[in-house]
Amino acid sequence: MGIQKLTIGDVELDNSYILGPMAGVTDLPFRLLCREQGAGLLCMEMVSAKGILYNNKNTESLLAIHPEEKPVSLQLFGSDPKIISEMAKRIEDREFAFLDINMGCPVPKVVKNGEGSGLMLEPKRVYEIVHATVKAIKKPVTVKIRKGFDDDHVNAVEIAKIIEEAGGAAVAVHGRTREQYYSGRADWDIIRQVKEAVSIPVIGNGDVTSGEQAIAMRKQTGCDGIMIARGAQGNPWIFSELLAYERDGSIPPRPDVVQIKETMLRHARLQIQYKGDYLGIREMRKHVAWYTRGMHGSTRLREAINKVESYEELEKCLEGLDHRE
């Protein structure tokens, strides 16, 4: 069986599996690891449109793109159509394939400003933001949304139609409301409803952690692409597994402890290369916790990792890793 491709705007992806944007996770080092495992598209961490406007120094590092990770999707968040569209124009010459607008982030400080999933409550503003951005740049503009804001405002279908009408090239739908955050089950039926309502590509997101689940989501929803976010934490191999399962129904063996350890250390070296010793190692702490979930002694290891301050200390900490429980 061949691998299903995905075309968004004028860009054809090698496959339909996408690394979803996660703040503090989908940075350049992690994206490179996921690309090696076959991810068809990599979404960057969300970037504040105002951060670009005011030349925030932390924003510049978030905008870094490596030639080997392309194609990537650069995601902006904000609530002002003028600022978002103008900042999209300002950075358009950078090496990203798509400009994505975040309308799904559930974090209180983002929602409080009417940004992220707060925009799901403002259909008119959704249109204005997407329309202004599509007019401002030549690259395809995509949008990530949720099922709705809460159970009283399940409006993904309405919002997706508005996005299409405003010129959006694709929409990614997370099957949970903002109020759910990441709890409970993702509602795949809302993804199906969106797919039936619009003609632009629809990317399904929520609760896919295996090839079987990916195929099940595709069958149930008819979605054009599948976005993997939390399922990739500590698990860049998920992309090669999804591709293997789609190709011939095979389930590759999970990486052994030696492979996981080598990947963690390589991940740490990349973190240090791009972020320096201090930040690089500290940011690795959460990744190590994810990589070692379910391993023998992982609780003790996490406690030790939280005190690690250098690559050598990390290496020493990981010496004792053995079998999975």
Rank of each mutant, 00 (worst) to 15 (best):
T7P: 04
I8V: 15
D10A: 14
V11Q: 11
L13P: 08
L13W: 02
Y17T: 02
M22P: 04
G24T: 05
V25L: 10
D27T: 08
D27M: 06
L28W: 06
P29H: 09
R31W: 03
C34D: 09
G38C: 07
G38K: 11
A39I: 13
L41C: 15
M44V: 05
A49M: 12
G51N: 11
L53P: 02
N55L: 12
T59Y: 03
S61V: 14
L62M: 15
L62T: 07
H66Q: 10
P67D: 15
E68P: 00
K70A: 10
V72W: 13
Q75P: 10
Q75L: 08
G78C: 02
D80F: 04
D80T: 05
P81K: 11
R90K: 15
R90E: 14
E92W: 05
D93L: 11
R94A: 05
F96R: 07
A97V: 04
L99V: 11
I101Y: 01
C105N: 04
P106N: 01
V107Q: 12
P108R: 05
P108T: 01
K109F: 07
K109N: 07
K109P: 05
V111T: 04
G118S: 06
L119H: 10
L121A: 13
E122L: 10
V126H: 00
Y127I: 10
I129Y: 04
I129T: 07
V130N: 02
V134E: 07
K135V: 05
V141R: 06
T142Y: 01
V143W: 04
G148I: 13
D152F: 03
V154G: 00
E158Y: 00
G168K: 02
V173E: 06
H174C: 13
T177V: 12
Q180V: 01
Y182T: 12
S183T: 09
S183Y: 00
R185E: 14
W188D: 02
W188K: 02
W188L: 06
I190D: 08
I191K: 03
I191H: 05
S199F: 02
S199R: 13
I200G: 12
I200W: 05
I200A: 12
P201M: 01
N205S: 15
G206D: 05
V208M: 04
T209E: 08
T209F: 11
T209Q: 03
S210F: 04
G211R: 11
E212Y: 02
E212W: 01
A214M: 07
I215N: 00
A216S: 08
M217A: 01
K219G: 00
G222T: 09
G225W: 13
F239C: 09
E241Q: 14
L243F: 07
A244R: 06
Y245C: 07
E246L: 07
R247L: 15
G249F: 04
S250V: 14
P255K: 09
Q259R: 15
T263G: 00
R266M: 01
A268S: 10
A268Q: 09
I272G: 03
Y274A: 06
D277S: 11
L279F: 03
M284H: 10
V288Q: 10
V288Y: 10
Y291M: 03
T292K: 03
G294L: 11
S298E: 08
T299V: 11
I305Q: 13
E309P: 00
S310D: 06
E312C: 01
L314V: 05
L318A: 14
G320A: 13
D322W: 06
H323P: 00
H323R: 12
R324T: 13
E325C: 09
